[in-house]
Design a protein around this nucleic acid. Structure first.
Length: 577
RNA sequence: GGGCCUGUAGCCUAGCCUGGAUAGGGCGAUAGCCUCCUAAGCUAUAGAUCGCGGGUUCGAAUCCCGCCAGGUCCGCCA
């Protein structure tokens, strides 16, 4: 069964199409959503007008007079060259609230489809804790995971684990050769923070000492050759780091289904297979033994169009293994999504071309995000200009705690304040990152990150808590059983319901367009309209019992949509705050 | 030098793919609203050459071309 607004749109479109056929206009109409007061759906006649050489205004009127009223179509009005459709408010109210009441936490979700999607995200080098520069990655990734699940897909999240690269090699060397006395003490009692010092010092030493540099190169070489002993050492080195990263992710409600080590593709020889096949490509060239694809004819320009996939000594490169990984992924899913920093754009393109040359069907859809920088320059571990994800989490929660304490210090217990500030702080953090489209640069400022008012998660959580407040006060009354929904007549009520009705469409748009941020905007809108309703339409003090019940039902529906929506963003919905 | 992304009020941002009706919001500012369901809220006011210049179109923030600024990449690194 369709959701109410989808059904309404269908009816209007069918009706409109029929009228166009009647008038013998061959034209595929496109419906728009106008601003509220103009109507619910709108058909602009301008394009059609230029085709048949008639004035848009005349066409609009011609069409409007022929549109029949239906279950949904209540009124048709023309303004200039527009045909504006008004849908029946009562039908929308009753069908939407019933739909929410029936589906509950399932409301908004689209029909299950038998399609598997693998979303690769985070995939950070396991040499230290996650920092804010890349913090968009897990948040965008996890939000996409949740959105695609809601859109009916079978979703698996994957972390591609670079266990044989330079970064892990440096860490491995550091842990094997440095004395923990010489490592600066971390302020966090977390395994990733404890390890990163070894990496940093080793990194520094390597630059001045050729011997060390050579030893590290050796580690890399050995792991590339698939030498198990070295890979085991590396595994031992990065595992605690990964554990720490995982812990941070868990705290912001992110779990990764599967970690895929890069070395797997060396061990199972699938990289060799990739090399063998690419060798046969007509774009393959050889430079002193190193093999490359010439990508000039694929629109790759710049100083160097050569995409090397082996070194002169025959060993493979990161990108080669990435190709093997993607071939493997493609066999296990119908759709692939990769969340990547914008620095991976070229590499991603190269892999895509290679996959095409290898006749691989499933080409990944990359979602690129711009880095988070700090006011005054780039983030850099060396210059101490780094803010870790853990720093950000701590600061957000701490600030949330202060807010909770000033507001509810007398009312809530210490434990409750702690619990709520965790929910609010984490929510604010995730929301702040997801509300902006990924490709936009973000300059990190504490004032912005810690602002809990306006377009921020606490605003939405607050609306949810308010709704819960009303419901809990009314619990003793019989409540929502068989409310007469026709008694909802106030504009604020209708405006809210109309927005609630859009939820499934928003999920559809967000998944089809890979746009997690529109969920955030939508929820802000709901919360905003709920606050207006809250102002205009009192529930508890309402004397008319039928109206009171109907409003209660609306409050409960709003609560459900807010909760479901926040869930998509990985944000908890507190019942009080 | 070349490729890709971004440029919307003091600050942040939606809309751009798929051109359409007065460019939506938020922060900050100013002025109001708690004997009434949580004021992390609500209402109002001020604030925009949609980076700049051309073009296409009945119509351009949106499409095309050129330029400017910022980010990012152009390793037999990962």
């Amino acid at each position: 069964m369709d959701y109410p607004l989808t059904e309404a749109r269908k009816e209007i479109k069918t009706n409109l199409k029929n009228v166009l056929i009647q008038l013998e206009y061959k034209f595929e109409p496109k419906l728009e959503i106008p601003s509220e007061e103009l109507g619910d759906f709108s058909f602009p006649c301008f394009t059609l007008a230029s085709l048949i050489r008639k004035s848009p205004k005349d066409i609009a009127e011609e069409i409007a007079t022929r549109i029949k009223k239906g279950k949904w179509i209540n009124k048709v009005k023309t303004i200039g060259g527009y045909v504006n459709f008004f849908i029946d408010k009562q039908i929308l109210i009753t069908s939407t609230l019933k739909s929410i009441y029936n589906k509950k936490e399932d409301y908004g979700n689209l029909k299950k489809i038998n399609e598997k999607v693998i979303i690769e995200h985070t995939s950070a080098n396991p040499n230290g804790p996650l920092h804010v520069g890349r913090a968009r990655n897990p948040i965008i990734g996890d939000t996409l995971v949740r959105i695609f699940k809601a859109a009916g897909f079978d979703v698996e999240s994957q972390f591609y684990l670079d266990d044989m690269g330079k970064q892990v090699a440096i860490l491995t060397w550091g842990l094997g050769n440095l004395n923990s006395k010489d490592i600066p003490i971390s302020k966090y009692n977390k395994s990733d923070h404890k390890s990163v010092g070894f990496y940093q010092i080793a990194n520094k030493l390597m630059k001045d000492d050729e011997k060390i540099s050579k030893e590290i190169s050796n580690i890399i070489k050995k792991s590339e050759n698939g030498e198990l002993k070295t890979l085991k050492l590396a595994h031992k080195a990065y595992t605690p780091v990964l554990k720490g990263i995982n812990k941070s992710l868990q705290r912001i409600n992110i779990t990764i289904d599967r970690y895929i080590p890069e070395s797997d593709f060396v061990k199972n020889k699938s990289v060799e297979f990739v090399v063998e096949k690419l060798k046969k490509s007509k774009y393959c060239g050889n430079e002193n033994g190193g093999l490359y694809l010439d990508l000039e004819s694929f629109g790759i320009h710049g100083r160097n169009t050569k995409f090397f996939f082996t070194r002169s000594d025959g060993t493979t490169l990161y990108a080669t293994r990435d190709i093997a990984y993607h071939i493997w992924k493609g066999k296990h899913a119908d759709k692939l999504i990769n969340v990547l920093g914008e620095d991976h754009k070229l590499e991603s393109k190269q892999v895509e071309i290679a996959l095409n040359l290898l006749d691989v069907k499933s080409i990944p859809k990359p979602i690129f995000y711009a880095f988070v920088s700090m006011a005054g320059g780039k983030m850099s571990t060396r210059h101490g200009r780094v803010v870790y994800l853990d720093d950000l989490i701590e600061e957000c929660v701490k600030r949330a705690y202060e807010e909770v304490k000033t507001r509810k210090g007398l009312e809530f217990s210490e434990a409750k304040m702690k619990e709520i500030s965790e929910i609010i702080g984490i929510g604010a953090l995730r929301y702040n990152i997801i509300k902006v489209q990924p490709e936009k640069d973000i300059v990190f400022k504490w004032e912005d990150a810690l602002n809990f008012e306006g377009n921020a998660a606490p605003f939405i959580q607050y609306a949810h808590a308010r709704a819960c407040g009303i419901l809990s006060k009314m619990e003793k009354n019989k409540g929502i059983k068989d409310p007469d929904l026709f008694s909802l007549k106030h504009d604020s009520e209708f405006n809210l319901v109309k927005k609630l009705a859009e939820f499934p469409i928003i999920i559809d748009d967000a998944s089809k367009g890979f746009k997690p941020h529109i969920i955030a905007t939508f929820l802000f809108d709901i919360a905003s309209r709920f606050n207006q309703f809250y102002r205009d339409c009192h529930v508890i003090s309402e004397k008319n019992i039928e109206l009171k019940k109907a409003r209660l039902s609306l409050v409960n529906s709003t609560r459900i949509v807010l909760k479901n929506g926040l869930y998509l963003l990985g944000i908890m919905a507190p019942e009080e705050m």
